[in-house]
Every structure is written in C-alpha cells, then in structure tokens.
Amino acid sequence: MKSYQAIRTTPAPDSAVVRGPGEVEVRLRVNGATRTMSVEPRVSLLDALRDRLELTGTKKGCNQGACGACTVWVDRRRVLACLTLAISCENREVATIEGLADGDTLHPMQQAFLDADALQCGYCTPGQIMSAVALLAEGHAGDDIEIREWMSGNVCRCAAYPHIRAAIRRVRDEKGSGDAAR
C-alpha cells in the first residue's frame, strides 16, 4: 500500500540537459512502479497519467488548476497534475488514487468516503481522497473549520462537502486505532 508518509523523496534530476521540443523518453515512478513513455516535454502530468499510462483515476475537471480533481502526490506533496509537466516529475515519486488501496482492501479514507456517502457522481472523488489523506498527514484536520479551509481546493459540484468532512473526521478519530494511522 502506498501510504502518504512512506514515500521517500529522491534526488532532483540534472536540469542542465536540454530535451525536446519533439518527443522524448520520459521515465516516471508512479505508485512505486517505473513507467516509460515517449512524449513531448509540454505534456502535463495529468495527460501523461490519463492518456499515456491509462491511469484515468486522476481526473481532468478544468485543466486550469481551479477544481482539484487532478490532485496527486509528488514527493509526498499535494500537486495539481494539470499544472505540472510530466517531464518535471522524473526521478520523483508520483502517487495516484490507483495506488492507495491495499489490493482489495480499501484505504480507510476510501472506506470512509464510501460509508459516509461523501460522493455522488464520483468524478472529483479521487482528488478529494488524495487531498483528504494528505490533509491528515499535514496536520490540517484539527477541527471542521480547518478541514473546510484546507479541503477548499477540491470542488465537488454535487456538494457532498458535509459528508466529505464526516469521512475525514472518522479517519482522523480512528487514527490511534492502528490501521488508519497512515
């Protein structure tokens, strides 16, 4: 399972090498696996994940950094994949929603979203969950006011917000009890 805190930062790449503008080979580490693709340097991390690696769990809602549906983690930080170039993520650890569960066992946040009905159409949900798990690790889930503020980068047009908060509270409050403390 890809837990938020277990991902290690790797050294930054050598930025002195000029590549592109044509297609170049880009190697990404995504959910612990190395993936190689031939893309132009202008390709966003979002389009690389969705169109090249078929990791479509990361969603494209606005492609302008306004909706949060494309939230992934790059080196343990919440990042908007639509505003990030894939090539800039070489030698970094990218984590997406597909890597969150432990096989058939849902991550506690995924289970909490399901139980609290913190989703309706489900399109913003992967981004909400990636944000929510990170939120706990960041220490930004102390109370509802804090959760509301720090989850406001993820728009849910179905407006499941109160249920999203309930799901986050549940995982936060279960934290001491073992499994959820990731």
């Binding site: 769990g57 990361t58 494209k60 969150l100 849902l106 995924q110 399901l114 489900g122 949900t125 992967p126």
Partner: peptide, 18 residues
C-alpha cells in the same frame, strides 16, 4: 452504500473520456 462507490473511490470507474 452506493453499488458503484467502490469503483469510484478507487478511481476505477471509466467515464466517457476514459
């Protein structure tokens, strides 16, 4: 619980562009 919820929280539901 939503019968499609498990797919959705795992990012496995395929929307039309996917």
């Amino acid at each position: 619980n939503r019968v499609d919820g498990r797919f959705k929280v795992r990012g496995e539901s395929r929307y039309s562009a996917e």
